[in-house]
């Protein structure tokens, strides 16, 4: 069943979904609270994932810096995760790359801030 909707069939006709349903199901089931998924929900999730990949790629390319160079880079994606509300949930797995020297400077600044007014950081984290 899972193989049915994968790739193109013998006649070269476009299949409904090109991502492997079996793998999508494994990912869905890795979520502990999910008990069962019907076939339609599985097909729809696979299709949605395809649309998502297309949208993330085109959005990042259009808003990215590589348009003149005809390139899509990691930083374009990281920018999308940072700037777009819809793609905000990706911010953790697509962190912006910064130079180590810059990071160290940030750490130092943060430490100084913490020393200036202690405890305020914790309050922020909770709110």
């Amino acid at each position: 069943m899972a193989d049915v909707a994968v790739g193109k069939d013998k006649c070269g006709e476009q299949r409904l979904v090109s991502l492997p349903l079996s793998r999508i199901r494994v990912i869905m089931k890795s979520s502990p609270e999910v008990s069962s998924i019907n076939q339609e929900a599985l097909v729809l999730t696979a299709k949605a994932t395809e649309l998502f990949v297309q949208y993330l790629a085109t959005y990042s390319y259009r808003h990215g810096s590589g348009k003149e160079k005809k390139a899509l880079t990691y930083n374009d994606l990281a920018n999308t995760a940072e700037e777009s509300d819809t793609f905000q949930f990706l911010a953790d797995i697509l962190p912006k790359k910064i130079l180590a020297s810059k990071y160290l400077k940030m750490l130092k600044e943060k430490k100084e801030e913490d020393e200036d007014d202690e405890g305020s950081d914790d309050d922020e984290a909770e709110s």
């Binding site: 999508i24 890795s30 999730t45 949605a48 994932t49 998502f52 949930f89 990706l90 797995i93």
Partner: peptide, 9 residues
């Protein structure tokens, strides 16, 4: 990102 999308969805 696609795997995370599946989990989120």
């Amino acid at each position: 990102a696609a795997s995370v999308f599946v989990l989120y969805a």
